[in-house]
Design a protein around this nucleic acid. Structure first.
Lengths: 215, 215
DNA sequence: CAGTGGTCTAGACCACACG
DNA sequence: GTGTGGTCTAGACCACTGC
C-alpha cells in the first residue's frame, strides 16, 4: 500500500485530532491538493475514508468540513461501535470452539505479561489482536469491517491523550470475564460484558479529553 | 446526480439480484468498462458502493466477486441492519417530541389508506418514509447512513421476488405499536418492536426467495 | 457569474497473483 | 512473465452554491 491517499489520510487525521485543524474548518480540495502535492483523486479518497471514521462530514455539493472531536460527538461514534461489537460478541459466544478459547487465553496471558512489564505499547497492540480474534470467531466480515473502521480514529485519540496505566487492570479483568462467557456459550452475557467494556473505554477517553482541555 | 457510476451501479445490481450474474462470478474491471462503455473510475465507484450494500466482496489485489444472494448471506446483512436500527429506535424513543409523533401518525394514516386502496407501490414508498422519520428523530446521521445503505439492496430484492399483500396488515399493526412506544418514551420497548419488525421482514423475504427457487 | 465540488476521460504506472 | 487490480496524473466538464 502506502499510496498518496494513505499518506494524506494520516496527516489529515493527525492535524484534526491534535486540534491543528479546528472543527468546522472547510477542507477545500484544491488547497489540500496543493498542500500535499497531489492531484484530486487521492484527496477524495482520503476524505472518503475520514468520513467513514467519523472525523469529517461531507454535504453534497458543499464539500467537507472538520467535525468536532469532542466528548459529545465521540459518544455517537461509540454508539455505532457498541451496537456492532455487542452483536459480534453474541455471535462469537454461539460459535466459539475450544481452540478459539485457547487462543484467546494465550493472547490474554501475553497482554498481562506486557502490562506487568510496563510495556503499555505492546499491551495495546495485543489488545487490538484480542478483539480481532473475537471478530474472527463471530465470522461476520461485514460487521467487523464497520467496527474496525473506527479503530484508526480511536487509536489516534489514545495516542494524543495518552493511556492511563491504571486502566490496564480493569481491561485485563474484563477480558477474563469475556473469555469465560464465550467458553460458557452465553451470548447475552458476552454481549453485555463487551458493551460495558467499550463504554468504560469511552468514559476513560472522555475523562482524558476533559482533563486535557481544562488543565 | 445520474452519473455514469450510478447507471452502472443500477445495472450491475439488477444483473446480480435477478440471478443473471451468478454468485462467485469474477467482475473484471476492463470487461465492465467495455461492457458499459466507460473508463475505470466509474466502475471502481460502482463496485465500492455495491460492496457497501453487501452484494459483492472485494479482496485486495484479487478483485471483486459476486456474493451469494441466498437466505444465509441475507441473514448476516439483516443482522447489521437490526443492530443499528434497534439502537436508533432506542434513541428515538428518548428524543421524540409530540410534533414528531404527529408526523409519524400522519404518514401511517397515509400508508394504511394506500394499503386499503391496493396501491402497494405507494405504500412501500411511504413505508420507507416512515422509517426515515424515525431515523431523523434519533438524530444520528452516521448510523442512519449505515442502515440506509442496505435499503437499495433490499428494495431490489422485494422488486424481484414481489411483496405478499397479506404482509401489509402486519406491517401496519407493527407501526402503530412502534409509534406508541415512542410516544410513551419506552426505549427498550421501541427497540424490541423494531427488531421484531425487521426480523419479520427478513422471514417474509426469505420465504419468497425459497418459494421462487423451488416452485 | 464566479467559486467549488464532484465526476469523468485517457492513459501511465506499480504491486501482486497466478500459471 | 503476463494479466489484473489498484492507484495516480492532468486536465476537462457539469452542477450546484452563494455572492
Amino acid at each position: 500500500m502506502s499510496g498518496a491517499a494513505e499518506r494524506i489520510l494520516d496527516r489529515l487525521r493527525g492535524d484534526i485530532v491534535s486540534g491543528h485543524l479546528r472543527s468546522g474548518t472547510h477542507l477545500k480540495i484544491d488547497y489540500l491538493a496543493a498542500r500535499y502535492d497531489s492531484s484530486h483523486m487521492p484527496i477524495r479518497e482520503a476524505l472518503r475514508l475520514l468520513e467513514g471514521e467519523g472525523l469529517i462530514v461531507r454535504e453534497p455539493n458543499r464539500g467537507a468540513r472538520v467535525r468536532a472531536v469532542d466528548p459529545r460527538s465521540i459518544a455517537t461514534i461509540f454508539e455505532v461501535r457498541i451496537s456492532i461489537e455487542s452483536m459480534l460478541a453474541r455471535r462469537a459466544a454461539a460459535l466459539a470452539a475450544p481452540a478459539d478459547i485457547a487462543l484467546l487465553e494465550d493472547v490474554q496471558d501475553a497482554i498481562e505479561a506486557r502490562s506487568e512489564a510496563g510495556d503499555t505499547e505492546g499491551a495495546i497492540a495485543l489488545n487490538r489482536r484480542f478483539h480481532n480474534i473475537i471478530e474472527d470467531i463471530a465470522d461476520h466480515a461485514d460487521a467487523a469491517a464497520i467496527a474496525n473502521r473506527q479503530c484508526e480514529l480511536l487509536d489516534s485519540l489514545w495516542r494524543v491523550y495518552g493511556v492511563d496505566p491504571s486502566r490496564l487492570g480493569g481491561v485485563n479483568s474484563d477480558h477474563r470475564y469475556i473469555i469465560q462467557a464465550l467458553r460458557d456459550r452465553c451470548p447475552e452475557t458476552a454481549a453485555i460484558l463487551v458493551t460495558a467494556h467499550i463504554i468504560k473505554g469511552r468514559m476513560d477517553l472522555v475523562r482524558r479529553m476533559l482533563e486535557a482541555s481544562a488543565p
